[in-house]
């Protein structure tokens, strides 16, 4: 936070300050501002207090807001997620950190059976304003239990909102929206993005849930992506532009709900579409998108919907496998090219 460089956003009539900061700092800033704004917001998780979180996202929050609002928990994911569910039904707005998305699998009950279901099965008597903050994705040196991308699991479940920010600005603006939402939000950060730096317009920059971002306009093919695949796909699009291929890149940001209108509008315009994500291809989020697009835009398609994801194996440890496990700039380039032939 200390190294943040201030500059003025000249593009905006409202002279909101724009700061360069990392994705992790942007999250920290959003948490601090929401804790400040709303006394019912609390933060819970392993090592989030005095230590500031293993990725530094909750740094200094306990010192500033006290141990009753920023709570270190035992290594009891079921226990503290359930605690958050009970607290949310009684008027608090817990933001829970689950250190790795892989660990949500030991406490899925509280996310899927409890947080997602209780508002519905009580006939709307309770609301569930919880944010399940976690991070996912592969990085060199990770193995199969610290690298998964499980967005398709969460997006499958009615009652959950699923967000996956790709930039510091979105990390900030989407977390604020998530905390203010009265529905349970699974907030999927990416471990490879924490150190990335970008401009963030502070204060009231809120990214409404359900809104995608067209990060590059194009006319020949639509690339649908999110999270850490966004920069990979953008660099592929840059390379293709040199060959005269115009790629439209949509950062979906919100996987549930999906910005269906933006997706369909783009696909109908380009007639070609490839989905690129880090989750496994089989049963991945891309399968849902492919299904939706063929149902609602079949007549506009000039080629089958392309799908790229991780190989359907657990992430292998040795770095030699990295380039075959995930989509790369080169594999994205060839997928985008081949859908046009």
């Amino acid at each position: 936070m200390q190294q943040v460089r201030d500059k003025v956003d000249t593009g905006s009539s409202v002279a909101a300050a724009v700061h360069e900061m990392t994705y992790a700092q942007a999250l920290n800033r959003a948490l601090a501002e929401e804790l400040e704004r709303d006394p019912s917001v609390i933060v819970m998780g392993e090592d989030v207090g005095a230590y500031g979180g293993v990725f530094g996202v909750t740094r200094d929050l306990q010192a500033r807001f006290g141990p009753r609002r920023v709570l270190d928990t035992p290594i009891s994911e079921t226990g503290f997620l359930g605690c958050a569910v009970g607290a949310a039904m009684c008027g608090l707005r817990p933001v829970v950190e689950i250190m790795f998305v892989d660990f949500t699998l030991v406490c899925m009950d509280q996310i899927v059976n409890q947080a997602a279901k209780l508002p519905f099965l009580t006939g709307g008597q309770v609301r569930m304003p919880i944010v399940f903050r976690t991070q996912q994705g592969a990085r060199p040196g990770t193995a199969a239990q610290h690298s998964q991308c499980l967005e398709a699991l969460f997006a499958h479940v009615p009652g959950l909102r699923v967000l996956a920010p790709a930039t510091p600005a979105d990390a900030y603006g989407m977390l604020k929206a998530a905390i203010r939402s009265d529905d349970p939000v699974v907030y999927l950060e990416h471990k490879a993005l924490y150190a990335t730096v970008g401009p963030v317009r502070l204060s009231e920059y809120i990214v409404p849930i359900g809104m995608s971002n067209t990060v590059r306009s194009g006319s020949h093919v639509t690339a649908l992506t999110y999270s850490a695949m966004v920069p990979v796909v953008l660099s592929a699009a840059d390379a293709l532009a040199e060959d005269g291929i115009s790629v439209e890149v949509i950062d979906l940001r919100s996987l549930a709900p999906l910005d269906e209108a933006a997706v369909l509008e783009s696909v109908k315009r380009t007639g070609h579409v490839v989905v690129i994500h880090e989750g496994w291809r089989r049963g991945g989020y891309g399968a849902e998108l492919a299904g939706l697009i063929q149902e609602l835009a079949f007549d506009w398609l000039d080629a089958p919907v392309g799908r790229m994801g991780a190989r359907d194996v657990p992430k292998p440890f040795s770095p030699v496998f990295d380039s075959v496990y995930l989509p790369t700039k080169d594999s994205v380039i060839s997928a985008l090219r081949s859908t046009l032939c």
Binding site: G79, G86, A87, M89, C90
Partner: peptide
């Protein structure tokens, strides 16, 4: 869900303290 109520009860209690 057998056992799910106990963590939830702790949260309801935490909210009262809060």
């Amino acid at each position: 869900i057998v056992g799910a109520g106990l963590p939830i009860a702790t949260g309801a209690a935490l909210a009262q303290l809060h």
